[in-house]
Simulated assay, not measured.
Amino acid sequence: MPELRTVCVYAGSSPGADPAYAAAAAALGTEIGRRGMGMVYGGGSVGLMGIAADAALAAGAPVTGIIPAALHAREISKIDLTELVVVDSMHERKFLMAERSDAFAALPGGVGTIEELVEALTWTQLGIHRKPVGLLDVAGYWAPLTTMLDAARDARFVRPEHRDMLLSEREPAALLDALAAWEPLALDKWMDGGPPAV
């Protein structure tokens, strides 16, 4: 895999109920900067996304925010970034975030964070990109999702190898190490002989 230079961070626009979430967001941003890496994220100044961006900037990381015009005011775009890109749609936002990143790391967050995370993982599974995807599992936040993926694997909707593509660590340094060490699979998505003939 190419060198890990830039990490896309998915994170909630709320700080969440547990102070451990904010602490983890700050720690991830700091570790990205400490390693001389860059960060790409959703461009907001609020919640965990703003905390991670502030910490990364303070640690010397270049930080790029990408935000749709419709959310520019609602998520209170962060204006002191290295670069703020305002786009027309959520689709364009997610495409650019993926294009500008070498890997994806998800902090706790809501429906938007979950949707972005699962789409990035799907693109890796399908070979649309060959980039690792990981969870920073703060205080067990992501346990229900990993349990659901285990159920999908056990029910034969997901290959075991594809289930294992989603990395999960409890500490930022361990997660970044795992993302850097990841190797893409040479494995087709299809189970049981592939798709039906057309």
Rank of each mutant, 00 (worst) to 15 (best):
L81P: 06
G33E: 11
R159T: 04
A70F: 09
S89M: 03
E116G: 11
T82A: 03
D80T: 12
E31H: 06
W123G: 09
P196T: 02
A105N: 04
F95M: 08
V158E: 13
R100K: 12
A178P: 10
R100A: 05
A197T: 15
P108G: 10
E119M: 06
M97Q: 15
L126D: 06
E119S: 10
G50V: 12
A69M: 03
E115R: 04
E169I: 00
M90Y: 02
A152F: 11
E119P: 07
P195H: 13
V40D: 08
R35S: 02
A174P: 04
M97T: 03
V138G: 07
T146W: 06
V86K: 03
L166A: 01
R170F: 06
G110N: 07
S89W: 06
I66E: 13
E75F: 00
V7T: 05
A174M: 02
R5T: 03
R130L: 09
H129G: 10
V158F: 11
L84K: 01
A173W: 01
L96H: 07
W190M: 11
A27W: 11
L145W: 09
V138L: 09
S101I: 01
L167H: 01
L167Y: 01
P160L: 03
Y141W: 14
A27Q: 10
S89V: 05
M148I: 15
K189N: 13
A178M: 12
I128Y: 12
V118F: 14
E169A: 14
E83T: 08
D154G: 05
P196V: 07
H91N: 11
K78Y: 05
V9I: 14
A11M: 03
A53V: 10
R163K: 08
P160F: 07
D192Y: 15
E183Q: 15
V46P: 05
D137V: 02
L145P: 11
I66A: 12
M1T: 09
V138F: 12
A120T: 02
G134H: 07
P196K: 09
D188M: 08
L136S: 13
R159I: 05
E92L: 06
A22L: 14
H72S: 11
L81Y: 05
D154L: 08
L136R: 07
Y10W: 12
R170P: 02
T122G: 01
E183D: 09
L149V: 05
M165I: 07
W182H: 10
P195I: 08
M37D: 00
M90D: 02
H129T: 14
M90T: 04
A23Y: 11
H91G: 09
P160Q: 10
T6N: 02
E169H: 12
A152T: 13
L48F: 09
P2E: 04
E161S: 13
A174E: 08
V85S: 12
D80E: 10
R93V: 15
R156H: 13
P195G: 09
M37E: 00
A17Q: 08
P160R: 12
M148W: 14
